[in-house]
Design a protein around this nucleic acid. Structure first.
Length: 268
DNA sequence: CTGCCCCTGTAA
DNA sequence: TTACAGGGGCAG
């Protein structure tokens, strides 16, 4: 599920339901989900605190708590975070936060790769400062992006995904951004011309904004689950199909151990 | 850079 | 049975 657009929409939908609520208790059903502290230490640290804000930084969800604490949640591959009534404990429920009035926040994660931690807000902030700029904020400028791109020999796709040059892009939206900018994902990023990098900069922002819109619509249908959003993919998952732009067969390769889809004809 | 690991579910 | 999965940390 989660790249920046999905995490953003998760936060937007959670925030109005839990901001201002007090955490009565945290129930950790799988100890490994909490790191680096212990399950008991985590429950102890968050219990009794009030949720002041819900926000996103990259693919992380931050719950700002009273008393100068913050919870950091990373959904990884299959995590989901949502407000609900006291939940049924299905096997994928890893952690849930008991609020007042029979309300709860549930962290469900079938693969159990997601991670939750708590810390002093200033320490959490320090960790987040190590991440690159938010792509839809004013901190992410074309000039900064160009400067970073010209200094890296990484393949263009891995450059987009490593969360230090820009945050929030994962396997799908990195591939889609490159497709829109017509850049070969294997090409060392510094070998792209400045105008190509400028196109990529625009593509990243366009792709993410479009995806947030799609995911927002998707999540609005109550009770309906869908594996993918209505975001129209140009290449992702389309090995062997025709490129929507030029009709050439879309290829699948492996980079950094993960699938990359691209059009070898129009991505140069 | 590649490979391994963390985990589980689902499809080929 | 194997491959693969919208992530990321780490060792070599």
């Amino acid at each position: 599920m989660p790249e920046l657009p999905e995490v953003e929409v998760t936060c937007r939908r959670l925030a109005p339901q839990v901001t201002g609520k007090r955490i009565r208790a945290a129930h950790v059903l799988r100890a490994g989900t909490i790191a680096p502290q212990t399950a008991a230490g985590f429950a102890q640290a968050v219990s009794g605190r009030t949720i002041r804000a819900v926000r996103r930084r990259g693919k992380n969800i931050i719950l700002d708590l009273s008393g100068g604490y913050a919870v950091r949640i990373h959904l990884r591959m299959t995590g989901e975070l949502f407000a609900s009534e006291i939940p049924d404990i299905t096997p994928a429920v890893r952690v849930w936060f008991e609020l007042g009035g029979r309300r709860a926040i549930v962290f469900r994660d079938s693969r159990a790769l997601g991670r939750i931690s708590v810390g002093l807000a200033r320490d959490v902030e320090k960790q987040l400062d190590a991440l690159g700029p938010e792509p839809l904020s004013s901190a992410f400028t074309a000039a900064r992006f160009l400067e970073q791109a010209r200094a890296s020999r990484m393949p263009s796709k891995l450059f987009l995904m490593d969360q230090t040059h820009v945050v929030g892009l994962g396997n799908i939206y990195a591939a889609e951004s490159l497709w829109r900018a017509r850049i070969d994902p294997r090409k060392p990023v510094l070998r792209n011309s400045p105008s190509k990098i400028a196109e990529l900069y625009r593509a990243i922002r366009d792709v993410l904004r479009d995806a947030i819109k799609s995911v927002t619509l998707e999540y609005k249908r109550p009770g309906k689950y869908r594996e993918t959003s209505s975001f129209t993919h140009g290449v992702y998952g389309k090995e062997g199909e025709g490129c929507p732009r030029c009709g050439h067969r879309i290829r699948r390769i492996v980079q950094g151990g993960r699938s990359t889809y691209f059009c070898p004809n129009c991505q140069k």
